[in-house]
Simulated assay, not measured.
Amino acid sequence: MKTILFAVRVSDLERSLAFYTAVGYLTLATIPRDDGSSLIWLRLPDEQSVSLELVHRPADGPVETGGFEHFAIEIDSLAETIERLTAAGLQPGEPELPGGPDGPKTSWLVDPDGYRIELVEWPPSGAPTFP
């Protein structure tokens, strides 16, 4: 068993697509629906298949993001990623060390609808493993 993708509902499809493209996602497919809604499948360059689905359903009214805490993206270099995202016009947060100096480096980014994205650079020892 494995996770395939997760989906987020977005209020402005073009704005959200521009944001996630600036983050680094690639568009795989756009799927228009008969009811006026649409789906866009995205993946990051190192992923083999779709990992994020943007769901646009204008008839459902405003997007409310309460309850969805965040999702995380593993990156190679937090400093380089923050620099690239800032140059692209995004606003990543200041670097954090939630596990102390030997733990991961993180930063937070918020998409146009308020979904929080955690950027994670694992330490040289790698990601934690659990029994």
Rank of each mutant, 00 (worst) to 15 (best):
K2D: 12
T3E: 11
I4R: 10
L5V: 06
F6T: 11
A7C: 05
V10R: 04
S11G: 14
D12K: 01
L13H: 11
R15E: 12
S16W: 13
L17G: 03
Y20W: 15
A22C: 07
A22D: 04
L26T: 09
L26F: 11
L26D: 09
L28S: 03
A29C: 04
T30H: 14
I31H: 12
P32T: 07
S37H: 09
W41H: 15
W41Y: 15
L42S: 08
P45Q: 05
S49W: 13
S51E: 04
E53K: 04
L54Q: 00
P58H: 01
A59R: 08
A59N: 09
G61M: 01
G61I: 07
V63D: 07
E64K: 13
T65L: 03
T65I: 13
F68V: 11
E69G: 10
E69T: 13
H70I: 05
F71P: 02
I73N: 10
E74R: 11
E74T: 14
D76E: 15
D76I: 12
S77Q: 06
S77D: 12
E80Y: 06
I82G: 00
E83A: 14
R84S: 10
R84D: 02
G89Y: 02
L90Q: 03
Q91N: 14
P95W: 02
P95I: 07
E96F: 00
E96N: 06
P101I: 01
D102G: 12
P104C: 08
S107V: 03
W108M: 09
V110M: 05
V110W: 01
V110A: 03
D111V: 02
D111L: 06
P112L: 02
D113M: 03
L119I: 00
E121V: 08
E121P: 03
S125A: 13
G126P: 01
A127N: 09
T129I: 05
F130E: 10
